[in-house]
Write a protein that binds this DNA or RNA. Structure first.
Lengths: 190, 190
DNA sequence: TGCATTTGCCTAATACATTTAGGCAAATGG
DNA sequence: CCATTTGCCTAAATGTATTAGGCAAATGCA
Protein backbone atom coordinates (compact mmCIF):
# COMPACT_ATOMS: atom_id res chain seq x y z
CA UNK A 1 0.00 0.00 0.00
CA UNK A 2 1.22 3.44 -0.89
CA UNK A 3 2.01 5.68 2.02
CA UNK A 4 0.16 8.92 2.49
CA UNK A 5 3.20 10.86 3.70
CA UNK A 6 1.70 12.13 6.92
CA UNK A 7 3.63 14.38 9.26
CA UNK A 8 2.53 16.35 12.27
CA UNK A 9 2.94 19.55 10.25
CA UNK A 10 0.83 18.37 7.35
CA UNK A 11 -1.87 17.27 9.77
CA UNK A 12 -1.82 20.65 11.47
CA UNK A 13 -2.00 22.50 8.16
CA UNK A 14 -4.87 20.34 6.96
CA UNK A 15 -6.55 20.88 10.32
CA UNK A 16 -6.14 24.64 9.97
CA UNK A 17 -7.70 24.61 6.51
CA UNK A 18 -10.52 22.44 7.75
CA UNK A 19 -11.06 24.79 10.68
CA UNK A 20 -11.46 27.70 8.29
CA UNK A 21 -14.02 25.75 6.30
CA UNK A 22 -16.16 24.17 8.98
CA UNK A 23 -15.08 25.68 12.29
CA UNK A 24 -12.33 24.84 14.72
CA UNK A 25 -14.40 22.57 16.90
CA UNK A 26 -15.39 20.44 13.95
CA UNK A 27 -11.72 19.66 13.50
CA UNK A 28 -11.58 16.06 14.52
CA UNK A 29 -9.03 13.30 14.22
CA UNK A 30 -11.44 11.36 12.02
CA UNK A 31 -12.16 14.30 9.72
CA UNK A 32 -8.47 14.85 9.07
CA UNK A 33 -7.96 11.14 8.53
CA UNK A 34 -10.73 11.23 5.93
CA UNK A 35 -9.04 14.16 4.23
CA UNK A 36 -5.86 12.12 3.78
CA UNK A 37 -7.89 9.00 2.96
CA UNK A 38 -6.33 7.19 5.86
CA UNK A 39 -7.65 5.49 8.98
CA UNK A 40 -8.02 7.63 12.09
CA UNK A 41 -5.74 5.38 14.10
CA UNK A 42 -2.89 6.17 11.73
CA UNK A 43 -2.72 9.76 12.90
CA UNK A 44 -1.62 8.63 16.33
CA UNK A 45 1.87 7.93 15.04
CA UNK A 46 2.22 11.65 14.37
CA UNK A 47 0.22 13.42 17.06
CA UNK A 48 -0.31 12.28 20.63
CA UNK A 49 -4.05 12.79 20.65
CA UNK A 50 -6.80 15.15 19.67
CA UNK A 51 -5.64 17.82 22.10
CA UNK A 52 -2.13 17.68 20.72
CA UNK A 53 -3.48 18.14 17.21
CA UNK A 54 -5.46 21.21 18.22
CA UNK A 55 -2.48 22.62 20.02
CA UNK A 56 -0.41 22.32 16.85
CA UNK A 57 -3.07 24.12 14.86
CA UNK A 58 -3.11 26.86 17.49
CA UNK A 59 0.66 27.25 17.31
CA UNK A 60 0.52 27.42 13.53
CA UNK A 61 -2.11 30.16 13.63
CA UNK A 62 -0.19 32.15 16.24
CA UNK A 63 2.92 32.05 14.05
CA UNK A 64 1.06 33.16 10.96
CA UNK A 65 -0.57 35.98 12.82
CA UNK A 66 2.73 37.10 14.33
CA UNK A 67 4.35 37.09 10.90
CA UNK A 68 1.63 39.29 9.54
CA UNK A 69 1.89 41.66 12.46
CA UNK A 70 5.64 41.93 12.02
CA UNK A 71 5.23 42.76 8.35
CA UNK A 72 2.54 45.32 9.14
CA UNK A 73 4.45 47.37 11.69
CA UNK A 74 7.79 47.28 9.86
CA UNK A 75 8.61 50.80 8.76
CA UNK A 76 5.58 52.36 10.41
CA UNK A 77 5.14 54.31 13.64
CA UNK A 78 2.47 56.00 15.70
CA UNK A 79 -1.09 55.86 14.48
CA UNK A 80 -0.03 54.35 11.17
CA UNK A 81 1.49 51.41 12.94
CA UNK A 82 -1.46 51.12 15.30
CA UNK A 83 -3.95 51.00 12.45
CA UNK A 84 -1.90 48.50 10.48
CA UNK A 85 -1.51 46.26 13.51
CA UNK A 86 -5.22 46.43 14.25
CA UNK A 87 -6.14 45.59 10.69
CA UNK A 88 -3.93 42.54 10.72
CA UNK A 89 -5.96 41.05 13.55
CA UNK A 90 -9.29 41.88 12.04
CA UNK A 91 -8.39 40.80 8.52
CA UNK A 92 -6.85 37.57 9.70
CA UNK A 93 -9.95 36.71 11.70
CA UNK A 94 -12.16 37.45 8.71
CA UNK A 95 -10.06 35.55 6.21
CA UNK A 96 -9.32 32.65 8.54
CA UNK A 97 -12.02 32.35 11.17
CA UNK A 98 -11.07 28.81 12.09
CA UNK A 99 -7.39 29.64 12.44
CA UNK A 100 -8.26 32.71 14.49
CA UNK A 101 -10.36 30.61 16.83
CA UNK A 102 -7.49 28.15 17.03
CA UNK A 103 -5.14 30.97 18.00
CA UNK A 104 -7.17 31.37 21.20
CA UNK A 105 -7.03 27.69 22.09
CA UNK A 106 -5.86 27.55 25.71
CA UNK A 107 -2.21 26.49 25.84
CA UNK A 108 -0.53 25.16 28.92
CA UNK A 109 2.06 27.59 30.29
CA UNK A 110 5.10 25.81 28.88
CA UNK A 111 3.66 25.57 25.41
CA UNK A 112 2.48 29.17 25.55
CA UNK A 113 5.97 30.37 26.46
CA UNK A 114 7.42 28.51 23.47
CA UNK A 115 4.74 29.82 21.12
CA UNK A 116 4.59 33.02 19.11
CA UNK A 117 2.71 34.58 22.03
CA UNK A 118 5.78 36.39 23.36
CA UNK A 119 6.45 37.77 19.87
CA UNK A 120 2.98 39.27 19.91
CA UNK A 121 3.66 40.90 23.25
CA UNK A 122 6.98 42.26 22.01
CA UNK A 123 5.33 43.74 18.94
CA UNK A 124 2.66 45.43 21.03
CA UNK A 125 5.40 47.08 23.06
CA UNK A 126 7.26 48.09 19.91
CA UNK A 127 4.07 49.66 18.67
CA UNK A 128 3.65 51.64 21.85
CA UNK A 129 7.17 53.10 21.70
CA UNK A 130 5.70 55.85 19.53
CA UNK A 131 3.54 56.90 22.46
CA UNK A 132 6.26 56.95 25.11
CA UNK A 133 4.35 55.59 28.09
CA UNK A 134 6.34 54.84 31.24
CA UNK A 135 5.92 51.54 33.03
CA UNK A 136 3.63 50.24 34.39
CA UNK A 137 1.35 52.27 32.15
CA UNK A 138 2.81 50.72 29.02
CA UNK A 139 1.83 47.28 30.27
CA UNK A 140 -1.69 48.46 30.96
CA UNK A 141 -1.81 49.83 27.43
CA UNK A 142 -0.53 46.56 25.98
CA UNK A 143 -3.32 44.76 27.76
CA UNK A 144 -5.87 47.31 26.62
CA UNK A 145 -4.87 46.96 22.98
CA UNK A 146 -4.94 43.19 23.15
CA UNK A 147 -8.36 43.31 24.77
CA UNK A 148 -9.86 45.69 22.25
CA UNK A 149 -8.52 43.91 19.20
CA UNK A 150 -9.36 40.49 20.43
CA UNK A 151 -12.70 41.53 21.83
CA UNK A 152 -13.82 43.44 18.78
CA UNK A 153 -12.82 40.76 16.35
CA UNK A 154 -14.40 38.03 18.36
CA UNK A 155 -17.69 39.89 18.84
CA UNK A 156 -17.70 40.77 15.16
CA UNK A 157 -17.14 37.22 14.04
CA UNK A 158 -19.90 36.07 16.37
CA UNK A 159 -22.15 38.32 14.33
CA UNK A 160 -22.45 40.95 17.04
CA UNK A 161 -22.22 43.95 14.72
CA UNK A 162 -23.92 42.74 11.61
CA UNK A 163 -27.48 43.75 10.83
CA UNK A 164 -27.11 47.08 12.59
CA UNK A 165 -25.97 50.53 11.58
CA UNK A 166 -23.38 51.96 11.38
CA UNK A 167 -21.42 49.25 9.68
CA UNK A 168 -18.60 47.49 11.38
CA UNK A 169 -15.85 49.00 9.26
CA UNK A 170 -16.83 52.48 10.37
CA UNK A 171 -16.79 51.53 14.05
CA UNK A 172 -13.43 49.88 13.60
CA UNK A 173 -11.90 52.99 12.07
CA UNK A 174 -13.31 55.24 14.77
CA UNK A 175 -12.21 52.90 17.52
CA UNK A 176 -8.66 52.95 16.21
CA UNK A 177 -8.88 56.77 16.08
CA UNK A 178 -10.08 56.76 19.65
CA UNK A 179 -7.32 54.45 20.85
CA UNK A 180 -4.73 56.63 19.18
CA UNK A 181 -6.17 59.68 20.91
CA UNK A 182 -6.22 57.84 24.22
CA UNK A 183 -2.62 56.71 23.93
CA UNK A 184 -1.44 60.20 23.04
CA UNK A 185 -3.32 61.51 26.02
CA UNK A 186 -3.02 58.70 28.55
CA UNK A 187 -4.46 59.79 31.92
CA UNK A 188 -2.07 59.97 34.85
CA UNK A 189 -2.59 57.56 37.70
CA UNK A 190 -4.57 58.96 40.60
CA UNK B 1 -39.62 3.65 39.02
CA UNK B 2 -39.54 7.06 40.63
CA UNK B 3 -39.37 9.99 38.27
CA UNK B 4 -36.48 12.35 38.37
CA UNK B 5 -38.52 15.47 37.67
CA UNK B 6 -36.54 16.70 34.72
CA UNK B 7 -37.40 19.91 32.94
CA UNK B 8 -35.54 21.88 30.33
CA UNK B 9 -34.81 24.55 32.95
CA UNK B 10 -33.41 22.12 35.48
CA UNK B 11 -31.23 20.60 32.79
CA UNK B 12 -29.94 24.01 31.80
CA UNK B 13 -29.21 24.97 35.39
CA UNK B 14 -27.40 21.71 36.03
CA UNK B 15 -25.52 22.25 32.79
CA UNK B 16 -24.50 25.74 33.88
CA UNK B 17 -23.20 24.43 37.20
CA UNK B 18 -21.35 21.65 35.45
CA UNK B 19 -19.85 24.18 33.02
CA UNK B 20 -18.49 26.19 35.94
CA UNK B 21 -16.93 23.06 37.38
CA UNK B 22 -15.43 21.37 34.35
CA UNK B 23 -15.73 23.81 31.46
CA UNK B 24 -18.51 24.56 29.03
CA UNK B 25 -17.35 22.17 26.36
CA UNK B 26 -17.33 19.29 28.78
CA UNK B 27 -21.04 19.83 29.24
CA UNK B 28 -22.48 16.85 27.53
CA UNK B 29 -25.89 15.23 27.40
CA UNK B 30 -24.46 12.14 29.06
CA UNK B 31 -22.79 14.08 31.85
CA UNK B 32 -26.02 15.82 32.75
CA UNK B 33 -27.91 12.54 32.56
CA UNK B 34 -25.39 11.07 35.02
CA UNK B 35 -25.94 14.02 37.33
CA UNK B 36 -29.66 13.25 37.49
CA UNK B 37 -28.97 9.53 37.60
CA UNK B 38 -30.97 9.02 34.47
CA UNK B 39 -30.25 7.60 31.02
CA UNK B 40 -28.98 10.02 28.40
CA UNK B 41 -31.83 9.21 26.03
CA UNK B 42 -34.30 10.50 28.61
CA UNK B 43 -33.10 14.06 28.19
CA UNK B 44 -34.39 14.13 24.64
CA UNK B 45 -37.95 14.53 25.91
CA UNK B 46 -36.93 17.90 27.32
CA UNK B 47 -34.32 19.31 24.96
CA UNK B 48 -34.11 18.79 21.21
CA UNK B 49 -30.45 17.87 21.15
CA UNK B 50 -27.05 18.80 22.48
CA UNK B 51 -27.03 22.14 20.67
CA UNK B 52 -30.39 23.04 22.12
CA UNK B 53 -29.11 22.25 25.60
CA UNK B 54 -26.09 24.49 25.15
CA UNK B 55 -28.26 27.25 23.79
CA UNK B 56 -30.42 27.11 26.91
CA UNK B 57 -27.35 27.37 29.11
CA UNK B 58 -26.20 30.36 27.08
CA UNK B 59 -29.55 32.09 27.48
CA UNK B 60 -29.50 31.43 31.21
CA UNK B 61 -26.05 32.95 31.55
CA UNK B 62 -26.97 36.00 29.47
CA UNK B 63 -29.98 36.61 31.71
CA UNK B 64 -27.97 36.31 34.90
CA UNK B 65 -25.32 38.64 33.57
CA UNK B 66 -27.91 41.18 32.44
CA UNK B 67 -29.56 41.08 35.87
CA UNK B 68 -26.26 41.78 37.55
CA UNK B 69 -25.52 44.62 35.15
CA UNK B 70 -28.90 46.17 35.80
CA UNK B 71 -28.35 46.03 39.54
CA UNK B 72 -24.88 47.51 39.16
CA UNK B 73 -25.81 50.59 37.16
CA UNK B 74 -29.00 51.37 39.04
CA UNK B 75 -28.51 54.66 40.84
CA UNK B 76 -25.03 55.28 39.43
CA UNK B 77 -23.78 57.50 36.64
CA UNK B 78 -20.60 58.49 34.86
CA UNK B 79 -17.39 56.79 35.88
CA UNK B 80 -19.06 55.15 38.87
CA UNK B 81 -21.50 53.40 36.61
CA UNK B 82 -18.78 52.53 34.12
CA UNK B 83 -16.62 50.92 36.79
CA UNK B 84 -19.54 49.02 38.31
CA UNK B 85 -20.60 47.73 34.91
CA UNK B 86 -17.08 46.66 34.05
CA UNK B 87 -16.66 44.85 37.36
CA UNK B 88 -19.85 42.90 36.80
CA UNK B 89 -18.42 41.37 33.65
CA UNK B 90 -15.08 40.59 35.16
CA UNK B 91 -16.45 39.24 38.43
CA UNK B 92 -19.03 37.11 36.68
CA UNK B 93 -16.40 35.59 34.42
CA UNK B 94 -14.19 34.85 37.41
CA UNK B 95 -16.94 33.39 39.57
CA UNK B 96 -18.62 31.51 36.75
CA UNK B 97 -16.13 30.76 34.00
CA UNK B 98 -18.30 28.09 32.43
CA UNK B 99 -21.38 30.29 32.41
CA UNK B 100 -19.35 33.13 30.98
CA UNK B 101 -18.11 30.91 28.17
CA UNK B 102 -21.67 29.80 27.60
CA UNK B 103 -22.76 33.43 27.31
CA UNK B 104 -20.60 33.67 24.18
CA UNK B 105 -22.07 30.57 22.59
CA UNK B 106 -23.07 31.60 19.06
CA UNK B 107 -26.84 32.00 18.87
CA UNK B 108 -28.77 32.05 15.65
CA UNK B 109 -30.23 35.49 14.89
CA UNK B 110 -33.76 34.72 16.04
CA UNK B 111 -32.63 33.28 19.34
CA UNK B 112 -30.21 36.14 19.88
CA UNK B 113 -32.95 38.70 19.36
CA UNK B 114 -35.11 36.95 21.96
CA UNK B 115 -32.22 36.66 24.42
CA UNK B 116 -30.98 39.10 27.03
CA UNK B 117 -28.52 40.41 24.39
CA UNK B 118 -30.65 43.45 23.58
CA UNK B 119 -30.90 44.27 27.31
CA UNK B 120 -27.12 44.33 27.42
CA UNK B 121 -27.02 46.73 24.51
CA UNK B 122 -29.64 48.97 26.12
CA UNK B 123 -27.69 49.08 29.36
CA UNK B 124 -24.50 50.03 27.54
CA UNK B 125 -26.34 52.94 25.98
CA UNK B 126 -27.81 53.92 29.34
CA UNK B 127 -24.33 53.91 30.75
CA UNK B 128 -23.08 56.19 28.01
CA UNK B 129 -25.78 58.77 28.57
CA UNK B 130 -23.54 60.31 31.17
CA UNK B 131 -20.98 61.03 28.46
CA UNK B 132 -23.41 62.61 25.96
CA UNK B 133 -22.01 61.27 22.72
CA UNK B 134 -24.01 61.96 19.55
CA UNK B 135 -24.79 59.15 17.13
CA UNK B 136 -23.09 57.41 15.44
CA UNK B 137 -20.31 57.94 17.98
CA UNK B 138 -22.36 56.47 20.78
CA UNK B 139 -22.68 53.24 18.84
CA UNK B 140 -18.94 53.15 18.25
CA UNK B 141 -18.45 53.64 21.98
CA UNK B 142 -20.92 50.85 22.80
CA UNK B 143 -18.92 48.55 20.58
CA UNK B 144 -15.65 49.68 22.11
CA UNK B 145 -16.85 49.01 25.64
CA UNK B 146 -18.18 45.60 24.69
CA UNK B 147 -14.90 44.76 23.02
CA UNK B 148 -12.72 45.87 25.91
CA UNK B 149 -14.74 44.13 28.58
CA UNK B 150 -15.20 40.96 26.66
CA UNK B 151 -11.64 40.95 25.37
CA UNK B 152 -10.01 41.65 28.71
CA UNK B 153 -12.04 39.11 30.58
CA UNK B 154 -11.50 36.45 28.00
CA UNK B 155 -7.74 37.02 27.79
CA UNK B 156 -7.56 37.07 31.56
CA UNK B 157 -9.45 33.84 31.97
CA UNK B 158 -7.21 32.24 29.36
CA UNK B 159 -4.37 33.05 31.74
CA UNK B 160 -3.01 35.87 29.61
CA UNK B 161 -2.19 38.22 32.45
CA UNK B 162 -1.20 35.87 35.21
CA UNK B 163 2.46 35.31 36.04
CA UNK B 164 3.41 38.81 34.99
CA UNK B 165 3.58 42.16 36.70
CA UNK B 166 1.69 44.37 37.28
CA UNK B 167 -1.18 42.31 38.50
CA UNK B 168 -4.38 42.08 36.59
CA UNK B 169 -6.45 44.05 39.07
CA UNK B 170 -4.22 47.06 38.64
CA UNK B 171 -4.46 46.96 34.85
CA UNK B 172 -8.20 46.61 35.08
CA UNK B 173 -8.52 49.70 37.26
CA UNK B 174 -6.28 51.75 35.02
CA UNK B 175 -8.07 50.59 31.88
CA UNK B 176 -11.39 51.69 33.34
CA UNK B 177 -9.77 55.04 34.20
CA UNK B 178 -8.52 55.31 30.65
CA UNK B 179 -11.89 54.46 29.13
CA UNK B 180 -13.56 57.08 31.30
CA UNK B 181 -11.03 59.66 30.16
CA UNK B 182 -11.51 58.64 26.56
CA UNK B 183 -15.30 58.88 26.74
CA UNK B 184 -15.14 62.31 28.36
CA UNK B 185 -12.78 63.40 25.62
CA UNK B 186 -14.00 61.47 22.60
CA UNK B 187 -12.12 62.59 19.47
CA UNK B 188 -14.17 64.22 16.74
CA UNK B 189 -14.46 62.38 13.45
CA UNK B 190 -12.00 63.52 10.82
C1' DT C 1 22.97 -5.50 -3.81
C1' DG C 2 21.00 -7.72 0.19
C1' DC C 3 19.53 -7.79 4.82
C1' DA C 4 18.04 -5.60 9.33
C1' DT C 5 15.79 -2.04 11.25
C1' DT C 6 12.76 1.48 11.47
C1' DT C 7 8.72 3.65 10.19
C1' DG C 8 3.99 4.17 8.47
C1' DC C 9 -0.30 2.74 7.92
C1' DC C 10 -3.35 -1.13 8.70
C1' DT C 11 -7.03 -4.08 11.33
C1' DA C 12 -9.25 -5.09 15.52
C1' DA C 13 -11.19 -3.83 19.65
C1' DT C 14 -12.81 -0.85 23.58
C1' DA C 15 -15.03 3.07 25.46
C1' DC C 16 -17.99 6.77 25.34
C1' DA C 17 -21.27 10.50 23.24
C1' DT C 18 -25.33 11.42 20.32
C1' DT C 19 -29.55 10.38 18.72
C1' DT C 20 -33.96 7.74 17.21
C1' DA C 21 -37.69 4.38 17.98
C1' DG C 22 -40.67 2.05 20.60
C1' DG C 23 -42.41 0.39 25.27
C1' DC C 24 -44.15 0.38 30.05
C1' DA C 25 -45.40 2.61 34.21
C1' DA C 26 -46.56 6.63 36.77
C1' DA C 27 -49.12 10.80 36.99
C1' DT C 28 -53.23 13.35 35.67
C1' DG C 29 -57.92 14.39 34.85
C1' DG C 30 -62.47 13.71 33.60
C1' DC D 1 -61.57 4.46 38.24
C1' DC D 2 -60.37 4.24 33.68
C1' DA D 3 -58.10 6.81 29.62
C1' DT D 4 -54.72 9.62 28.29
C1' DT D 5 -50.66 11.87 28.65
C1' DT D 6 -46.14 12.17 30.14
C1' DG D 7 -41.61 10.58 31.71
C1' DC D 8 -38.11 7.61 31.77
C1' DC D 9 -36.65 3.15 30.09
C1' DT D 10 -34.24 -0.37 26.76
C1' DA D 11 -32.34 -1.25 22.40
C1' DA D 12 -29.86 -0.03 18.57
C1' DA D 13 -27.32 2.75 15.02
C1' DT D 14 -23.74 5.96 14.17
C1' DG D 15 -19.57 8.50 15.00
C1' DT D 16 -15.32 9.88 17.58
C1' DA D 17 -11.13 8.86 20.40
C1' DT D 18 -7.77 5.84 21.52
C1' DT D 19 -4.74 1.56 22.29
C1' DA D 20 -2.49 -2.74 20.79
C1' DG D 21 -0.44 -5.45 17.71
C1' DG D 22 0.80 -6.66 12.73
C1' DC D 23 2.63 -6.34 8.01
C1' DA D 24 4.84 -4.03 4.36
C1' DA D 25 7.40 -0.20 2.57
C1' DA D 26 11.30 2.68 3.20
C1' DT D 27 15.86 3.33 4.91
C1' DG D 28 20.49 2.47 6.21
C1' DC D 29 24.40 -0.09 6.48
C1' DA D 30 27.68 -3.84 5.07
Amino acid sequence: MARAGLTAERLARAGADLADEVGFDQVTVSAIARHFDVKAASLYSHVRNSHDLRTRIALLALEELADRCAAAIAGRAGKDALAAFADVYRDYAREHPGRYTAARFPLDPGTAAASAGPRHAAMSRALLRGYALAEPEETHAVRLLGSVFHGYVSLESAGGFSHSAPDSQESWTRIVDALDALLRNWPTAT
